[in-house]
Computed example of a mutant assay.
Amino acid sequence: MDRIEQFAIPAGSAGTVTDVGAVIERMRAFRSGWHPGDGLAVFNQVYLTVTEAIGRHIAEGAFPNREAVSALDVRFAERYLTAVDAEVSGGRPPECWRPLFQHRHHPGVRPMQFALAGINAHIGHDLALAVVDTCRTLGCAPADLEEEFERVGDLLVMLEEQIREDLMPGPDLLEIADPLTHLAGAWSLERAREASWSAARVLWGLRGVPPLAEEFRARMDAGAGLVGRFLLTPCR
């Protein structure tokens, strides 16, 4: 395919999954089918951990608007699931995901890098589109989702700290001059999330001008892909 229309702003990828439970099922299926050392499997486990945590918070009533949070989580996950489906079927996934797909078996890339590259692709490109998808699903505007966006974001930041602790080598194996130290410290989930919120507002404002919306999305996609390639620079 020369163009991937499902990644354009007007189309979305609705229908891949219907609820958070279905998202978790698909991610668990990926986990069972991929070798743990596969770079995509590393990210998938990170994302599965996050999604399971969000699912528990939804079930416990931690979010005032459960419908909005569930819809945002599902629309967000669809972007990742559809990218994987495109890769498996021989299609052309978004540029932001291609570095991870291309380097997932590279022996010189460390688990922390795979996790960051996947998070970068998903936050740097997919999240803004998911906000727009959710607004269309619920018939609202981004401003109506801001509280849910922030609550989920706070949880993601806390989980990122745990992920860094789990995937970064211990001090006995990682010297301060190690390139991984600089790569891990150069990328910020918080800054990426802030940029995604701004991008979602821009895309929403451009929804009546599809050519401009698609141009903006494509440049956002390319930028996330470039960052992903830097994050996957072999460190050993």
Rank of each mutant, 00 (worst) to 15 (best):
I58T: 05
L174F: 03
R31W: 11
V84W: 07
H57D: 14
A130S: 11
G108Q: 09
F114Q: 08
G185H: 07
F216C: 02
P179G: 11
Q162S: 15
V131E: 01
M27G: 11
T137F: 01
T137Y: 00
A195P: 03
P36T: 01
L40V: 08
H35D: 14
G228R: 14
I176F: 03
D221M: 01
D166S: 04
V202C: 14
A195K: 06
W204L: 05
A71L: 08
R229F: 08
G37Q: 14
R207T: 08
L212A: 05
E190W: 02
V20R: 00
D154K: 12
E161L: 11
A199Q: 12
A83R: 00
L159F: 07
F101V: 14
T233C: 08
D38L: 05
G223M: 05
S198L: 11
R236S: 14
S188K: 00
T82A: 15
Q113I: 05
G124D: 01
R219M: 10
I54E: 09
V69N: 11
A41N: 07
N44Y: 02
A22G: 06
D126V: 00
H35G: 02
R98E: 09
V42C: 10
L226M: 10
T134Y: 07
A41D: 12
G139P: 08
M168I: 02
A128M: 00
S188D: 01
R207D: 03
V157G: 07
R66F: 04
L212D: 01
L81H: 03
T82V: 14
G139Y: 12
L189A: 04
V131L: 06
I24W: 01
F149D: 04
S70N: 04
T137W: 04
L189G: 02
W97V: 03
R31A: 15
E161M: 05
G39D: 03
G170W: 09
I4L: 11
Y80R: 06
R219A: 10
A177T: 14
D172T: 14
T18N: 13
D178R: 06
V23T: 05
Q162I: 13
A121N: 12
G15M: 13
G91C: 01
V20E: 02
V88L: 13
T134A: 07
A130C: 13
R193A: 00
N65A: 11
